[in-house]
Design a protein around this nucleic acid. Sequence first.
DNA 1: TATTGTTATACTCTATAACTATA
DNA 2: TATAGTTATAGAGTATAACAATA
Lengths: 174, 174
Amino acid sequence: MQDASDRDGAETLTAGDGESQIAYKLRLAQIAAYRAFEERVTGYGKAPRYLGLLMIIGANPGSNQSSLAEAVGLRRSSLVAILDQLERDRIVRRDPAPDDRRSKAVRLTGHGSRVLKELTEEAEAHEAALTRGIPEADLAILRAALDRIILNMRALDMPAANAAADRTDSLSRS
Amino acid sequence: MQDASDRDGAETLTAGDGESQIAYKLRLAQIAAYRAFEERVTGYGKAPRYLGLLMIIGANPGSNQSSLAEAVGLRRSSLVAILDQLERDRIVRRDPAPDDRRSKAVRLTGHGSRVLKELTEEAEAHEAALTRGIPEADLAILRAALDRIILNMRALDMPAANAAADRTDSLSRS
DNA sequence: TATTGTTATACTCTATAACTATA
DNA sequence: TATAGTTATAGAGTATAACAATA
């Protein structure tokens, strides 16, 4: 009798093994973290949801929409409505590109820069809450492990990268 | 000049700081891992997407739909279509509950058990690919850190849990 | 011909509210 | 009255395909 079929039923059900898997913990942690951040920044409208995009725009002012779409992993058609919203909220601006009349140069507005700055500070506070109680040495290992996982998973998509990933095996702690 | 506005534009854009944040890496890792798993198990229909649910059903046979919905964090109305699909695919069965004629006892079918077993093996292979090149000692730290993050984030929702989380600070490496 | 931004459209996932049958 | 399962409906979020303007 390894299951819980004879229990009370009052507590929340669990999924036997599987819960010890890193892939599973990763998913739970990400969902909880994402939800907590959204709750922290209630009142900033839709901007928090697109913080990654805003950071990219801030770090690469004047980029066109196709580049931005690729950077955040969306189709360029999907980005249109997002930029419409952010433009409506005066967070970003679409200027004519200087060199190519098909393109638009996307930039943060003055207000957008201030919002990004505030959200970045919120993200730092969120990061502190997230990592509370984890020793600094462990955080370094956590960071390296997450980087390696990202590398490992992307290697599956582009098999050519496998050899490169293998070569870093012995260097992963550098 | 700290941005990349004067670059070629050929490479993929990046988001300055922010990318060093654990919250950010967590999101990238989870997205990449989820995508890789779905690609690995193409051919199993919709079951892989609901692997967590299937594990819970497998570990708690005869549970009713409300309990299952709560366990996976969905409204019970949202679970209906999912179970419809899984029942259509002969993965699960909805039997009348023995004690309460409003409830249904959800169970894996024989075929569902076999599918779950195979998917569990696929998940283990996925886990191996995920953690490739990460030393066992670091994996233990990674697991503990992810658990702590989940705890930290949930504590924000239920402030009463803060004290409990704090008390485990010095025990987090046990 | 190829690319940029855009529109129209559809699909997936989830939520809310209201219903039914039981309790 | 309250609960379990269900339905109808709506709202995000993203994708595909086709289009006009420009390269």
